[in-house]
Amino acid sequence: MISVQEQDFNQQVEYERLRCQSSIGAIVTFTGLVRDINDGHTVSDLSLEHYPGMTEKCLVDIVEKAKVRWNIIASTVIHRVGHLTINDQIVFVGIASQHRGDAFAACEFIMDYLKTEAPFWKKETMEGGETKWVDARESDQKTLSKWAL
């Protein structure tokens, strides 16, 4: 299941949705949150823009790439857009597999690719009301090299 949405999500509901088959032996989930400090400045709010249509295609494509490499019985990727505040949930990736190794690897792979390929952009509002578009991190791009075949 892939969803780009404004509304919040519920971990337990998503977990239960993944726990759907008797062959599943492992579920790994990741949740990304809005952090209060980024690059040394205090953040009060975040707004997330995306490219409707391309975003969904891109997330489907990333999950498909993961399915080629690992056993994935069920998967969920949820990414929120719009206005978010400190500690809000931004992103959820959940992978159900036969074994934990596949679930851990696929979950991390999907997050790493999502961070560098999916067309989302964060704009922070800092304390005092000033706004700033978040710059992409070179380290995120470098992280991808570990998945090279």
Partner: peptide, 10 residues
């Protein structure tokens, strides 16, 4: 055709 800055989601 779309033009945009490097992405910063997740």
């Amino acid at each position: 055709v779309a033009f945009f800055p490097p992405v910063t989601g997740g």
